[in-house]
Amino acid sequence: MYTLAVCAETVFRDLPIEERARHIHQAGFQVEIWDWTRHDLEALARTSAEFSSTTGHVRGTLTDPDGAAELLRTAEESVKAAEHLSCPRLNLHGTGLDGEGLPVVPVVPVSGGATGEMWITAHRTLTRLAELGEGAGVTFTLENLNTAVDHPGVPFATAAETLALVAAVDRPGLRMNPDLYHAQIGEGNLIELVRRAHDGGLIGEIQVADVPGRREPGTGEINYPAVARALAELGYDGTVALEAWASGDSHTALERFRAAFTL
């Protein structure tokens, strides 16, 4: 069966990040964080939490040579941070991050899409990232995003684009992070998405939240128990991570997540 993790950035938000990690760990989940540069890694390591994922780059983009060079440089720094936390996965996006660690820097017009040259640059950069991950014993995961609500202008945002890039690179150091919240807003057909990605051996982990509002499962329109059954039928044994704002009490949000993915 899959392992459950919770993003510490989105729950227990009245507490320091180390205390959030402790609460998540004590509840029986692995822990994810966003931009590691904003946190005290020593303090996080002392929590005894098992870290599942953190941000794989701090600056840069996949779309142009200068941005790609900066992305690769900060990815090397991220590998060192991951080693400090014994964290096996580093999450990627096609663009730079804001002060909260969220990928919001627009690169392509809302009405348009990435150019052929952008695709070539992204493929070349992701191949180098995969090589970096393989040498360091970590896996970079490329996450799909939605451009309609949260991330307008972000390149390679759709699940189809993300899956195509990961499949084209075809290296064990790069996998897809199907974020089902973003996929529901952008494309829907969630079970077929995870089936295609799983059958291709391309899933690094899966992130979840409900729609609308990006709250925990059970607060919106997504039938997450059906998704959980599909994952079990596929034999998925990776990580499913809650990356959702708690609709109320954080402990309750964690238990709703656990219940949705407990068969």
Score class of each variant (00 low, 15 high):
residue 206 I to M: 12
residue 108 V to T: 09
residue 93 H to P: 00
residue 166 V to P: 09
residue 177 N to L: 15
residue 209 A to Q: 11
residue 206 I to P: 13
residue 73 R to S: 14
residue 260 A to M: 11
residue 244 A to D: 09
residue 39 H to E: 08
residue 198 H to I: 01
residue 86 S to N: 12
residue 92 L to W: 04
residue 14 D to P: 03
residue 195 R to Y: 00
residue 19 E to P: 03
residue 46 R to G: 03
residue 9 E to V: 07
residue 240 V to T: 11
residue 20 R to C: 13
residue 242 L to Q: 13
residue 186 G to D: 13
residue 10 T to E: 15
residue 91 N to E: 01
residue 192 E to K: 05
residue 216 E to C: 13
residue 24 I to S: 09
residue 98 D to S: 08
residue 217 P to R: 03
residue 180 L to W: 10
residue 203 I to D: 03
residue 87 C to M: 06
residue 143 E to F: 09
residue 44 L to N: 07
residue 147 T to M: 00
residue 166 V to R: 14
residue 149 V to Q: 09
residue 39 H to K: 04
residue 105 V to L: 15
residue 94 G to E: 04
residue 144 N to Y: 06
residue 50 E to W: 01
residue 172 P to I: 07
residue 178 P to K: 10
residue 120 I to Q: 06
residue 202 L to M: 13
residue 244 A to P: 11
residue 192 E to S: 10
residue 227 V to P: 10
residue 201 G to N: 05
residue 61 T to M: 07
residue 134 E to P: 00
residue 64 D to A: 09
residue 17 I to M: 15
residue 119 W to V: 03
residue 125 T to V: 02
residue 36 W to A: 15
residue 245 W to T: 14
residue 26 Q to W: 12
residue 96 G to A: 15
residue 6 V to Y: 11
residue 30 Q to G: 14
residue 7 C to E: 08
residue 228 A to T: 01
residue 9 E to H: 13
residue 93 H to M: 10
residue 124 R to D: 15
residue 169 V to R: 11
residue 67 G to Y: 10
residue 189 N to A: 13
residue 106 P to K: 12
residue 193 L to V: 07
residue 186 G to R: 00
residue 50 E to Q: 11
residue 3 T to I: 02
residue 230 A to C: 11
residue 252 T to R: 14
residue 28 G to R: 05
residue 74 T to F: 07
residue 115 T to F: 00
residue 1 M to E: 08
residue 77 E to V: 12
residue 168 A to H: 07
residue 247 S to F: 06
residue 79 V to H: 02
residue 9 E to K: 12
residue 59 R to A: 14
residue 167 A to W: 03
residue 12 F to H: 13
residue 121 T to P: 01
residue 172 P to W: 08
residue 224 Y to P: 09
residue 30 Q to M: 11
residue 43 A to I: 05
residue 163 L to S: 12
residue 195 R to P: 00
residue 129 L to A: 09
residue 94 G to A: 00
residue 217 P to A: 08
residue 16 P to Q: 10
residue 118 M to E: 14
residue 7 C to T: 14
residue 15 L to E: 15
residue 67 G to D: 06
residue 245 W to H: 15
residue 107 V to M: 12
residue 69 A to G: 08
residue 251 H to A: 15
residue 151 H to T: 12
residue 137 G to S: 04
residue 43 A to S: 12
residue 188 G to M: 04
residue 173 G to N: 08
residue 28 G to E: 04
residue 249 D to R: 09
residue 163 L to K: 08
residue 52 S to F: 11
residue 201 G to K: 04
residue 98 D to A: 08
residue 102 L to P: 00
residue 58 V to F: 15
residue 222 I to F: 05
residue 71 L to E: 07
residue 44 L to V: 02
residue 151 H to P: 03
residue 57 H to S: 10
residue 27 A to K: 15
residue 238 G to V: 01
residue 171 R to N: 05
residue 233 E to R: 00
residue 202 L to A: 09
residue 132 L to F: 00
residue 134 E to R: 01
